[in-house]
């Protein structure tokens, strides 16, 4: 039988899901997002709802947690989170 996880037996190009398909894309970054917890509404108020940064991140590099965390292994440094955060809780710093 054909097993796509076995490079010897595979006959067609069939790909399987894997994080970091393109490697550690964090290395592409020229600006690094720096999280300022004191400004994050999710930290300032337990009842607050936000997660705008999580929603807008094209890279899936921000977690939907309280507070959100940024996965710098993969963050490409686009700066959308910083621009979209209404509370100024993320600032971009040159790498």
């Amino acid at each position: 039988m054909v097993d796509y996880k076995d490079p010897k037996s595979t006959i067609a190009a069939v790909q399987v899901p894997s994080e970091g398909e393109a490697g550690k894309t964090g290395s592409w970054r020229s600006f690094k997002p720096v999280f300022n917890p004191e400004k994050c509404i999710l930290i300032k108020s337990e009842k607050a709802r936000c997660h705008i940064c999580w929603m807008f991140c094209p890279e899936v590099a921000i977690t939907k947690s309280r507070p959100p965390t940024i996965n710098l292994d993969y963050c490409k440094g686009c700066g959308i989170c910083s621009t979209e955060c209404p509370h100024g809780a993320i600032t971009m710093k040159k790498e």
């Binding site: 899901p17 393109a22 894309t25 592409w28 709802r49 991140c57 890279e59 939907k64 490409k76």
Partner: peptide
């Protein structure tokens, strides 16, 4: 919907080949 109404489950994985700031990635997600 508010942002945090969106389900947490992701079908798009990080470390992919899209350009930085790609709207297609966000849309597809």
């Amino acid at each position: 919907l508010r942002p945090d109404d969106l389900p947490e489950q992701e079908f798009l994985l990080p470390g992919n080949r899209s350009c930085a700031g790609c709207s297609m990635s966000l849309y597809y997600r």
